[in-house]
Design a protein around this nucleic acid. Structure first.
Lengths: 260, 260
DNA sequence: TTAATAGTGTCTCTGAGACACTATCGT
DNA sequence: ACGATAGTGTCTCAGAGACACTATTAA
């Protein structure tokens, strides 16, 4: 029995089907709130939101108008949600070639007043300088960065409060348990710059104490000292530069071996 | 501008929408391939598949008929994919109250010959004894367990080869990096039983060597010795029993602290 | 007594964590 | 010289990994 025969009898319209399939993107960036000469940075994790226009591109009243929301949009049937996320991010912000990852599906009945609409949530990690050219497009009247400390106080569209909450938990975990911090940093960075990134999501003393962290960074298998290369951008005393190297990091609960 | 006004002008039928939304479940179980008296077990990780019927419930030729596939089915618009996975698993296998988790979305255009069909993949962890009552339902002509070592040699329906490959990678990671092994074990277990579970997905010497692992298990913060309680089911010498305890396990790359 | 499993004794090595101390530079 | 950042010296302690050794039981 071939699929061709089966297909002749299959009627795709017979069943209740979703009314839409969307991709939303939580774009994270880190802003240096203090960046004086010869000072280590102080950083704050931010998320980029858009303010939904009062009217849509055809001039009709918009759903959830005036509320803050994650950028995103409908997935075309010729692409995956992941591709759609990358495309929409590029269209809406001009940002491309960045770390983008799927982290969740939001399909609770009633989450969108327009009907049965399934959303795939992604997060993106973008260094500050890449967002300089951002601007609002047709469906958005404003684009703005909010500190993750206050973003949940906003009036958010749909179930985006929930999605953003999850996204923050995910990025926190990724920053601490993977080498994702790399995406927030320049190629070559000092221990205090990596430390500042990590301090946006934790206050653990092993990271917060300078002496401890300066020593620790030398033992991390995925970070390499760039021998002889130093900078004075964070202090008057020239500071050692490091870079990430691609090694598989195995952190099983049951053994601490570097890797095999 | 209220959502009510916007909704009056919104036509849900205006856009191309998905033709279906499904949930698939990779049900994992561990079979003891050696379970003699006074012997530690030897285990093998298995995945449960169904063989797709030649005809559907209404007697017409079925899509991907005769091929092996993950159990699953269409999500109703009154439920989430996750709820659907739990429901279908219960309907198809009688199994409930188990560890079930979403791990991926499969939406590549063309993945299903019936049209634009999005699948949410889940994995389930089921102790061997819970699968004893399994039986094929209408859409399936057979239900069978396959070792993960050979399952990819089968003729698999749709893109299930890819999904299964991903599921195996996910469960491997979950077993080693979280306390998921708990779901394969009885409440009280010996070090060699936990060891046997882990050896289904790794051959690392720190786990494979008895003396090393017997010592290691005592230092794991999420495992507790049941003081004074022993069993002889794995050896003639009475063996210490352990249980999992619920503690938050923090395994950041940047510090090894137990937790705060 | 033997075979099999479940441990323990002891050694060496690495790294964590704490705290005091030194190093380097612009101003 | 001072202030600020970036380290190092040194101690103690826990645990990893290796290997030899002991312990307990059924048969």
């Amino acid at each position: 029995m071939s699929n061709e025969q089966a297909m002749q009898q299959y009627d795709v319209k017979k069943y209740v089907t979703p009314d839409g399939y969307t991709a939303d993107i939580a774009v994270f960036t880190i802003l240096s709130t203090k960046a004086d000469m010869f000072k280590p940075p102080v950083m704050d994790l931010h998320i980029m939101l858009i303010k939904r226009s009062m009217t849509d591109s055809e001039g009709r009243p918009n759903i959830e108008a005036g509320k803050w929301a994650l950028p995103g949009g409908f997935v075309a049937h010729t692409e995956t949600a992941f591709q759609s996320a990358a495309r929409e991010l590029k269209e809406e912000t001009g940002v491309e070639n960045i770390h983008l990852e799927h982290f969740g599906v939001y399909d609770t009945p009633g989450r969108d007043p327009r009907g049965w609409i399934i959303s795939n949530a992604h997060y993106a990690i973008v260094p500050e300088y890449q967002l300089s050219g951002r601007q609002a497009n047709d469906d958005a009247s404003e684009v703005e960065l909010f500190s993750v400390k206050e973003v949940l106080n906003l009036d958010l569209a749909f179930d985006h409060a929930r999605i953003i909450e999850d996204a923050i938990a995910v990025i926190r975990q990724k920053l601490l348990e993977t080498t994702a911090a790399k995406a927030f940093l320049p190629e070559e960075f000092t221990y205090s710059e990596l430390q500042a990134v990590l301090l946006t999501v934790t206050d653990d003393s092993a990271i917060a104490l300078d002496a401890a962290f300066a020593r620790k960074i030398k033992t991390l298998p995925f970070i390499q000292e760039i021998s002889g290369k130093k900078t004075t951008r964070t202090s008057k005393k020239p500071t050692q530069l490091y870079r990430f190297v691609d090694v598989k990091v195995n952190h099983s609960l049951y053994h601490t071996r570097k890797q095999g």
